[in-house]
């Protein structure tokens, strides 16, 4: 069975794929889908509970929660992709170097990975973000810069197992340079595991972003994000449950979607599961 046949037969993976596609559509068409302007303040309708007019209620400034969540989808998508892209890029380059060359450079890179892995990552992220000005770009940067270690280990392991294979030796024998071997011969064979790591990484980045925004050091109001709507939920916890319930549900569904997709890709590209 090919990759696509395997993937197509896996209902859970397809569900994940559908959720991810739906999020893309919502993000791209947010201005047309959102029933209200996400920034429109209406002080006559502060903290209204969900109704036919405002499906998910209104917040402390009378803004429509559903519209803010639809625009918030854009933010989480952006953060997820850029931060993970950065982490994958760093992890791929370092992992390829460490695994391909071995020796002292491998030791150096892997010791650095050990150091980065052994402190509470969330502490470091918090410290860096708060010292920089909190902005969406800084969040992407910091989440990316603290999330590359797993990918490095993964890519290194793939490179170590692939670098002595016959096809690599053959390439070397006909005079291919290191760069050519790394990028054209070995890396394509490691792509499946990188893709899985990327998909799961996006889920993780979205969770981290929402936690940071919730603590007030992520995406700053008035820009809507799922995390900072939840902050309003905490501030009004005794009167407005809808501010807490819906944005968290959106995060949950999104993360489930990416996780299902990631595991689906993993299963579909695992030769041991092919019959």
């Amino acid at each position: 069975m090919t990759f696509w046949e395997m993937f197509y037969k896996n209902k859970l993976a397809l569900t994940g794929f559908a959720i991810v596609v739906a999020l893309f559509v919502i993000s791209i068409f947010a201005p047309w889908i959102a029933p209200y302007d996400p920034g429109a303040i209406d002080l006559k309708q502060v903290l209204e509970s969900p109704s036919a007019e405002h499906w998910f209620g209104t917040d402390q400034l009378g803004r429509d929660v559903l519209s803010r969540m639809i625009w918030g989808a854009r933010i989480s998508l952006k953060v997820g992709f850029v931060a993970t892209g950065l982490a994958i890029l760093i992890g791929m380059v370092l992992g390829a170097i460490a695994g391909y060359y071995g020796g002292w450079i491998d030791t150096l890179i892997m010791r650095f990975v050990d150091i980065m892995l052994c402190f509470p990552a969330f502490f470091l992220i918090l410290a860096v973000i708060a010292f920089l000005e909190p902005s969406i770009w800084n969040i992407m940067l910091v989440i990316g810069l603290t999330g590359w270690m797993g990918v490095t280990r993964l890519v290194r392991a793939d490179f170590i197992s692939l670098r002595e294979r016959d096809f690599v030796r053959a390439a070397r024998a006909i005079g291919a340079g290191d760069l050519r071997i790394i990028f054209l011969h070995i890396l394509p064979n490691a792509l499946a595991s990188i893709l899985v790591a990327a998909t799961l990484g996006i889920a993780g980045a979205i969770l981290t972003e929402s936690a940071l925004s919730f603590l007030g050091i992520g995406v700053q109001p008035p820009t809507p994000s799922w995390g900072n709507i939840l902050t309003a939920g905490k501030d009004n916890i005794d009167i407005a449950w809808w501010l807490s319930l819906y944005p968290g549900l959106a995060i949950l569904i999104t993360v489930v979607g990416y996780n299902l997709l990631g595991e689906g890709i993993r299963d579909a590209s695992d030769p041991r599961l092919k019959k």
């Binding site: 939920g233 005794d238 319930l245 993360v255 996780n259």
Partner: peptide
């Protein structure tokens, strides 16, 4: 377990606070 991986813990905390702390009034928040 699969959902457990995806739940933002701070959101779960908010929900539990609303349910057990405010709605039922059983636990301090």
């Amino acid at each position: 377990v699969f959902i457990g991986f995806a739940v933002p813990t701070f959101w779960l905390a908010l929900l539990l606070m609303i349910f057990f702390g405010i709605h039922l009034g059983w636990l301090p928040i």
